[in-house]
Design a protein around this nucleic acid. Structure first.
Length: 272
DNA sequence: GTGATATGCGGAT
DNA sequence: TCCGCCTATCACT
């Protein structure tokens, strides 16, 4: 489920439901049991998101560091006995409500030093008001790696994932193979502003929409047409389908270990 | 039932 | 560049 917008929504929701409250912490699955016992009945001070990292701060300088990975997810419901306890890594409950974490890549108890390391190792996060895009710009200047790979690097663009990578490149007509250090500064500024806008919208709406009104086919406006990832997109997972703007077949290729999609006509190679 | 796939990442090769 | 990991879902037999 997770690009940065999902984590920011989770942080806000957890904060709203459990922030400032004494909470029951458990690990029905057992894999987080020792830490859960330590935290049980203590107070959750707040939840914060940095890129794809979710940080749950408790009293006594204890923090739960959650990274959902590819398949992790939080579910919210009552604190009735869980349906599949064998996969329930972490439950946080108070007032009859529970937040259930399953399948995370990491769920660890960390101290303030480790917490600072998580924050410091992240690049600027377009969803955070304190983000400094200049840090991303400097890193791009120092590498010839394709911009399509750099966008997946959490030390450069924290919170950007495979959907936003494909979509922001498409919306700016950028060839994914373009070396990062050849990206013109005005284009970078525009990409950053677009990430802020697209990701903020995704936080607010709980889905990713990137298609401009003039490119939205009538058939796509119907709710039932909404894609499995939960929104309307130009190229993500549309390999072989016609580009919404020009009709060219959307291309697909693995880059940085993940499937990348783009339109060869709208995102042409730079003339050499 | 089986296998492929998924908005991710670290470690081995 | 490949592999393993964590879990759920969906297209197949």
């Amino acid at each position: 489920m997770p690009e940065g917008h999902v984590i920011h929504r989770l942080a806000a929701h957890l904060d709203e439901q459990f922030g400032g409250r004494q909470v029951a912490v458990s690990s029905p699955q057992g894999r987080f049991a020792a830490a859960a016992r330590l935290l049980n009945d203590s107070r959750l001070l707040g939840a914060d998101a940095v890129g794809k990292h979710l940080l749950l701060d408790f009293t006594d300088a204890r923090t739960i560091w959650v990274h959902l990975g590819l398949i992790g997810r939080f579910g919210f419901g009552s604190d009735a006995p869980p349906v599949k306890p064998q996969t329930l890594r972490l439950r946080i409950a108070a007032g009859g409500r529970a937040a259930d974490l399953r399948g995370p890549q990491w769920c660890r108890l960390i101290d303030p030093v480790q917490r600072a390391e998580v924050v410091d190792s992240s690049g600027p996060d377009p969803l955070r008001p304190d983000a400094d895009p200049q840090r991303a710009w400097r890193k791009l200047q120092a590498t010839r790696r394709p911009i399509g790979a750099a966008l997946m690097d959490q030390a450069i663009f924290a919170g950007v994932g495979n959907i936003f990578r494909a979509e922001v490149l498409y919306r700016h007509g950028i060839d994914p193979e373009l070396p990062s250090n050849l990206l013109p500064r005005p284009v970078f500024d525009s990409v950053w502003a677009d990430l802020v806008a697209l990701m903020s919208y995704a936080v607010a709406r709980g889905r990713i929409d990137t298609v401009r009104p003039e490119h939205t086919p009538e058939a796509m406006r119907r709710p039932e047409r909404v894609d499995a990832h939960g929104g309307e997109v130009y190229v993500y997972r549309r390999r072989g389908e016609p580009c919404l703007a020009c009709g060219t077949e959307v291309a697909g290729q693995v880059m940085a270990g993940r499937n990348l999609y783009w339109c060869p006509a709208c995102q042409p190679k730079a003339a050499s």
